[in-house]
Design a protein around this nucleic acid. Structure first.
Lengths: 212, 212
DNA sequence: CTTCAATTGGAGTGAACGCTACAGCAATGA
DNA sequence: TCATTGCTGTAGCGTTCACTCCAATTGAAG
């Protein structure tokens, strides 16, 4: 078992360096955006020369995309709906929202960078932007599933609209927190948001259900 | 009346040039953000040399700030609550939201730039960022006034929280539209949003009102 | 016509940008 | 031992950046 894969982990320094570069890059790009992220700054922050960065990543675009890709799993992990034993549907939904909010407070760089990329309109779209939009799309689908799971009466179309609305507002609340800092309780705001959307969904379902 | 101000408008070309520079700058900065806005690009788009830009504006920071300042009034104009003759309170609120949405669809550059500035965290904060945050704060106060006007029972604190929530979600919905393009109806989304917030406000007021 | 201030045009500054070339080095496999 | 591989260090390439200098132009005022 010591040498079945001869082409693996010959030098462990490589993967660690890659992480250090990504750590530096996520921080800087999360603060300054795409154009504001200079290779020199990333190099200075991670302590590795520019040539090392270009050994690990094809170019700046590739680096930014890798930054977002790495945060993907962490992000999805926070997006789980607690099981039925966790309480009423409303409690489960608010708990899920609080979970997401907490992960955003802990590591805001990912979403901050993603939203900046989403807002930018540069002639050649950075790969990181499309990757982020994919993440967002997966998120939207998960929310849609949660809605249809908790409110089976609801038709697919309304559920999707509500999910779009829910995700969009979540982005806005995140930005609000970035602006106001600790002055606003993101967890509380997310819980309020989850409650409003959930109640709106209930009312909508009841309305369309009564017509049959 | 033809020459009471001898030091005014000697050469009309100046003010027009200033407008052309700002027109170019709002477009470019709305697409590429602060760092992505190069003086050379603005110069090329407005047809004036860099020296003219620097004659009208102190530096790049001053230019970006001026871009936001100029959009201030246009923005506030769209933020008016229709009078009582316009219908029920809910109709008035949704009409106001639709109005804002329309103005955002027409001229998205202002808010796109503002949100990018708001998200960025550069060592020396651009003046344009603080100007935008001021605009946002005025907006939030106006929304607060609308809520307390339409629902007098509501206490000031809850009204403010709801206003923060309403403005934040509006930003998020705008971003959603920027991502999805014409695939999402921003006006409809804003109307839905206004309705949800209004109903939530009604329920909150009723709840606290019943306790006395 | 002369004067003068308001603008424009163009050339140019040093610094920072993304990125590359290449030598050097440490560990591995033969 | 020695060539190979994986990664680092240095130096520097061409380009673009924000910004400046200053001569030229233009319309109004005296």
């Amino acid at each position: 078992m010591t040498k079945p894969q001869p082409t693996r982990k010959k030098r462990a320094n490589g993967v660690e360096s890659r992480q250090r570069i990504l750590d530096a890059a996520v921080e800087i790009s999360g603060e300054r955006g795409y154009e504001g992220t200079s290779i020199a700054a990333v190099s200075a922050k991670c302590g590795l020369p520019a040539s090392s960065i270009y050994w690990h990543f094809k170019d700046k675009d590739d680096l930014i995309a890798a930054v977002i890709e790495r945060s993907f799993e962490t992000w999805l992990a926070a997006l789980e709906l607690p099981g039925e034993e966790a309480g009423t549907p409303l409690e489960r939904v608010t708990a899920m929202a609080a979970n997401v909010a907490k992960s955003l407070v802990d590591e805001p760089d990912f979403l901050r960078l993603g939203l900046m990329l989403a807002l930018e309109r540069r002639p050649v779209e950075p790969r990181g932007r499309t990757v982020f939009l994919d993440v967002r799309e997966v998120t939207r689908q998960k929310i849609t599933e949660v809605i249809t799971l908790l409110i089976p009466d609801m038709d697919e179309d309304t559920a999707r609209t509500l999910a779009v609305y829910a995700v969009a507002c979540a982005d806005g609340l995140f930005i609000q927190r970035e602006i106001t800092g600790d002055g606003v309780d993101l967890v509380a705001m997310f819980e309020l948001h989850a409650q409003l959307v959930y109640e709106a969904a209930l009312r909508t379902a009841a309305r369309s259900g009564n017509h049959d």
